[in-house]
Design a protein around this nucleic acid. Structure first.
Lengths: 346, 346
DNA sequence: ATGAAAGCGCTAACAA
DNA sequence: TTGTTAGCGCTTTCAT
């Protein structure tokens, strides 16, 4: 510990150049793996870098070139599904020079704007927006500023690439599963949405549409029943209370997300009913909570790691070529049946 | 959308100065709320900033002054306890110009070093390391480079401030609660640790020590029984299996963390035992999982928000005065009794 | 293949 | 109180 001594000036590119007896430019080229350096010079520079423990100043690099930083925004950090996406993302980026930095709690438009702006201000090389709630216009504005990938939101744009799960099909997986078990009164709990942009693009809206469509397809249109609350545990709790109070109770509840299913299970237990004997419950996201054996929630798996890996790949592509046409990747969800779904009683 | 047009050069401080008919310095001073600008000039500059939609380039600022960025490292993002800390932190920082950026999955020394280095390279103004696992020497090295707060780890250092929960007392809260209920064979599941630094400083080690001490204090020294696995769901599952296989089964299990308790509940259910009739279970962290009514896990609340708020306060203090002596804040945990603990059978 | 020199957009001494 | 100027540590032309 150099206690008391001055904060020890950081080693710069100049120090490396002097130590290696070469020009600053040469060092810079080595740092960027740029064209035009002889193997001999490569070696000398690399050795000097190692000997001095030199690390480039990212801010200074960013002034002219790249910052080698990728910003990722998350609505919140507690949803395990986001962790999976992040794992896929960082794994794909592990071998590159890019560093991922997160901006969390973008759960309202204002916070989301603050974080995205902060990332733009810090000249990040690219952005991955996970389940953003901002208006489409705002997203396109951000994407016009820097390479941007939007994850978990439908709707194509020329300004940004998208990676999403096929929520429409995912909802149908649940409905079909329950219908196959013999259920007819299959209710759904939805995240209430009024904004037109979001009604067309947000996963919750697509899942609700998928639910309706699948119910029609199975000849259960008369039994369509949606409690519109929110994608939270509280929302699930309140939604389930509504549904359980119906004159004729549903025999199955499809919660739009696992976190919602948590609230549903809570309300059902409180009402003195058993799962799945009295009522079946299914979620969406296949979180660790769903996999927890004492719960064993039937759910839909979105392959979060793949989503993240795809987002990383698309972002690197776009950083390399800003002009290429935008891409939309849609991944297929799979059904994971567990113990909360069973044939209806009687 | 300015499709096809050049990426629209960003507004700089020069543009603002020209627009407001003042010097660049004047604008810079207004940006930093620095001393020496007349109210008249203030107004003109602010108006120009608003009219042009100017936002300062953080990288450029960082070259000379601050980056207004605070880096926070997290072992993982799925532990809800970290989310609470983060909430407290960002809330405290909301009114400042600082932006919080996260570095996640620092769950091994190599990853932690990569992230902390990345943050140093990006000249962040300060660092908050949450439950870091690096060696003490490494932490001190980082702290010698920039203002650093270490959260959730005991052991004082002159180089960094710390904020931690009093895990020793927290463990005693659980033991006392169980002993008061009449339990004697109270077992503990621990995160296995061999490193000497960490044995003295990591929360898991302190909790285990607190458990031992409290058992002694209650005259239950003969019943001390620790299964040493890891602070994961899997660790809880395996640890519980070990404990359930004892010739004389414990009547209560104190899991070192809620996530561990999840695994414990799993193993107990698998063994066909009931909670709390056959065996009591307690956790630590008071996560949303513990609060989930169908689970209702007795746990210890660490007041994550307060921890975060304190970390933010200490960091701002230290950024303002790098030379002040280091501070250690220790917060008192509280017991939250729920339905997984009850008097032993018989 | 190599290097000299001109910035990038700010902040901080210093002058006026 | 205001403005001028010299960098911060890099990348990038552009000579050589």
């Amino acid at each position: 510990m150099t206690k008391g001594s001055a904060p020890a000036r950081r080693v710069t590119i100049v120090d490396v150049a002097e130590h290696a007896q070469v020009s600053i430019t040469a060092v810079s080229k080595v740092l960027r793996n740029a064209y035009g350096v002889s193997p001999k010079m490569q070696a000398r520079v690399r050795q000097a870098i190692a000997e001095l423990g030199y690390r480039p100043n990212a801010a200074a690099r960013g002034m002219r070139g790249q910052t080698y930083t990728i910003g990722v925004t998350l609505p919140n950090i507690i949803n395990p599904f986001f962790a999976q996406i992040l794992d896929g993302l960082t794994e794909h980026l592990a071998d590159t020079d890019y560093q991922v930095l997160l901006g969390a709690s973008c759960n309202e438009e204002k916070a989301e704007a603050k974080v995205t702006h902060a990332m733009i201000d810090r000249s990040m090389d690219g952005l991955v927006l996970i389940a953003p709630i901002s208006s489409r216009a705002y997203l396109e504005q951000v994407a016009s500023t820097m390479p941007t990938i939007v994850v978990g939101r439908h709707g194509r744009s020329r300004a940004y690439d998208t990676v999403a799960d096929d929520d429409f099909t995912g909802a149908a997986l649940i409905v079909d599963h329950l219908a196959d078990l013999g259920h007819q009164r299959i209710a759904h709990i939805d995240h209430h949405e009024t904004d037109l942009d979001r009604l067309a693009e947000m996963p919750n809206a697509i899942r609700a549409a998928g639910y309706r469509h699948a119910m029609h397809a199975r000849g259960l249109a008369d039994h369509i029943d949606i409690a519109s609350t929110s994608y939270t545990q509280e929302g699930g709790y309140l939604g389930a209370q509504q549904l359980l109070a119906r004159p004729v109770r549903p025999t199955a509840i499809f919660a739009g997300a696992d976190i919602v299913a948590m609230g549903v299970l809570d309300a059902i237990a409180e009402a003195g009913l058993r799962v799945p004997e009295d009522i079946s419950v299914a979620g969406y996201d296949n979180t660790t909570f769903a996999a927890f054996r004492p719960i064993s929630l039937t759910s839909v798996d979105q392959a979060g790691r793949q989503i993240g890996a795809n987002a990383a790949r698309l972002l690197l592509d776009r950083i390399a070529d800003q002009t290429r046409p935008s891409t939309q990747v849609k991944l297929s969800p799979t059904l994971v049946t567990r113990r909360t779904t069973a044939p209806p009683a009687g």
